[in-house]
């Protein structure tokens, strides 16, 4: 029943009740190449929609991860610290970044559905 929404910056948010699991899409991890480090926010941090919430680094690039919606960070995936490659191997599963308690669920309506996101990817190639 989990509904997943997407941003143009290739973050996803998988909605679970009033919280959402945030990570980067498979397309994004492929573009980045081998992820070597993920800088996660601290639990309890309040983020605005579109604000920088994390940083993901490959050998040659660092990219900011923006919060898809406003809210409070209620959990982060500490396992990425010792195994950043998980982001490449399983980006939408065990390679998640953080869990956000969604402040305003209406913001989700501005994000792309899975079908929309697929169509968006087609425009990029």
């Amino acid at each position: 029943m989990a509904d997943t929404r997407y941003t143009k910056d290739h973050e996803y948010i998988r909605i679970e009740g009033d919280t959402g699991i945030v990570g980067i899409t498979s397309y994004a991890q492929e573009q980045l190449g081998d992820v070597v480090f993920v800088e996660l926010p601290s639990v309890g941090k309040k983020v605005d929609q579109g604000a920088e919430a994390a940083v993901v680094e490959s050998v040659k690039a660092a990219s900011e991860i923006y919060a898809p919606v406003a809210g409070e960070v209620v959990a982060v995936n500490d396992a990425l610290e010792s195994a950043p490659g998980t982001v490449n191997e399983d980006p939408t599963g065990s390679g998640w970044f953080m869990k956000i308690r969604i402040a305003d669920s209406s913001q989700l309506n501005g994000l792309m559905s899975e079908a929309d996101y697929k169509a968006y990817l087609d425009t990029l190639s």
């Binding site: 040659k60 690039a61 660092a62």
Partner: peptide, 12 residues
């Protein structure tokens, strides 16, 4: 750990 450096991170 070059992502700390100016040639990649520029103003950050």
């Amino acid at each position: 750990l070059s992502t700390r450096e100016q040639h990649i991170r520029r103003d950050k």
